[in-house]
Amino acid sequence: MISALLPDFVPIWTAILAVGIFLYVVLDGFDLGVGILFRFAPDLQSRNLLMNSIAPVWDGNETWLILGGVGLLVAFPLAFAIIIPAVYFPILVMLLALCFRGVAFEFRSRDVAHRGFWDHGFFLGSVIATFVQGIVLGAFIQGFKVEGRVFAGGSFDCFTPFSLMTGIALVFGYGLLGAGWLVMKTSGALQKSIRVQGVWCLCGVCACIAAVSLWSPLLDLDIALRWLSWPNSLVLAPIPVLTLCVALLTGRALRNGSEAGPFVGAIFLFLLSYGGIAVSLWPMIVPHHYTVWEAASSPKTQAFLLVGTAFLLPTVLLYTAWSYWVFRGKVRGDIGYH
């Protein structure tokens, strides 16, 4: 059999998918976060500024969701076939909220008579999409009821106290990313008020990270052993310590006038939390049931796609970076919709 001669692509695909999902979380995270903070902007002019700050990039950011979904399907089809049905309703609500939000985004500037309606649609769409993404995350950490190769639970099993809490956590998290982005993009009084909102979001994020860190070992013996057994607790100690340091630095950057500090800090907080979850679950991709190797697609499948991905993905990344470069700097009130 030829596939026996092929090397093990699973680590490469795990890395590609991990990077892809992280990129989605950061990129769509900050523009969903802008949607969350949108409700708190004081006047029409600031709302327009907030909109224009993400106008050129949001749909590119959302396209990573397609690549994330299809990436999971192609690299770990068994995980896709178990996880997605298990979060049937959160996925549904997320898709509908994103649809509504995307359209609201475009229509508010054309349909002035109903601008208030579309503004609410944009805010609520952003909050709801974020909240259900958090539910997906919480349900994933808790794990699913699996029999053989299929999800065997009910469609509402994913709504638990823990997953509702991770939902709230993500709203604060994306809010913090959004605030970090907006600090770079705005100035003056508006920036000042966003810094204050950022501090609130940061407090929420810290409370939630603490809650998840204490709660998940209690939920799951494997996670408790992973973190608390010797010498793991020593080796892994830098993660919580670094998280605390980054949180403090982010708080200082929000208050001391740093322009890029809050956004960078927020990204690192996400990176550390993401790393923490990875440490808790590795190497399971369907917690308690299947490892990344067991859920992986055939080596021939992974090889075939890797050939194209090897040069298409860097090109996509280059383009994305370039488009952010083009639209760099502060958003100005005299340009765009006003």
């Binding site: 399907l73 896709f80 076939a81 499948t301």
Partner: peptide, 17 residues
Amino acid sequence: ANVIAPLLAYEGLTAFF
């Protein structure tokens, strides 16, 4: 998925690009 998922992924990548 082993057979048709890469075709969908190539669609995403090339179209995106």
